[in-house]
């Protein structure tokens, strides 16, 4: 566990700082596991180990089982999002216009596939169904910026510019 994580160790339990105390209202309600995990992910961009223990205390489900649930659903992350969230569109138009190849280029450039985050914590790559700007296909969005009419060269250039911007 990284030291920068918002947790505090007290004895054999881990306490999470800044975690929404209101959540204790779910105490003893196993059914509220999913909303709690979503809340943790919203607050921290991922689900920290400490949150698993904390939520385990609240709902009374053991950590191993919660970990099982997290790894079952693709919506949950166990690592922080990268600084830049790169979402590559896989809608019909983009698909027809070569989004698969673009995905491959990104994978070659960054060394990670969809759903992963680079070692340096810079990029997280996700694939989305349609970004709603089909006229620009193939398209990717990095944080708030849309990049359209992609080709391999363009992708390399864009990624470089983010990398050098730091």
């Amino acid at each position: 566990m990284k030291a920068s994580e918002p947790w505090e160790r007290a004895g054999d339990k881990i306490r999470l700082q800044g975690f929404n105390l209101e959540l204790w209202k779910y105490e003893g309600e196993p059914g509220s596991l999913i909303p709690l995990l979503q809340a943790a992910q919203r607050d921290y961009s991922y689900i920290p180990e400490a949150a698993i223990h904390y939520i385990s205390d609240i709902v009374g489900i053991p950590p191993a089982q919660i970990y099982g649930v997290i790894t079952f659903y693709t919506q949950f992350r166990l690592k922080p999002l990268g600084k830049y969230l790169l979402r590559i569109c896989n809608g019909t138009a983009c698909h027809v216009n070569g989004s698969k190849l673009m995905g491959q280029v990104i994978e070659d450039e960054l060394g990670i596939g969809v759903g992963q985050t680079t070692e340096d914590g810079f990029f997280t790559v996700q694939s989305v169904a349609c970004l709603g700007c089909c006229s620009l296909s193939p398209v990717m969005v990095i944080n708030e910026d849309t990049h359209g009419r992609l080709d391999p060269r363009k992708i390399r250039k864009i990624l470089k510019s983010y990398q050098s911007a730091g």
Partner: peptide, 20 residues
């Protein structure tokens, strides 16, 4: 009553394990 282990992942990657 220890709940040390659980099913992890889904589909072909499914396995038995502990948290992390």
């Amino acid at each position: 009553g220890a709940n040390e282990i659980s099913f992890l992942n889904r589909g072909f990657k499914m396995k038995i394990g502990t948290d992390f």
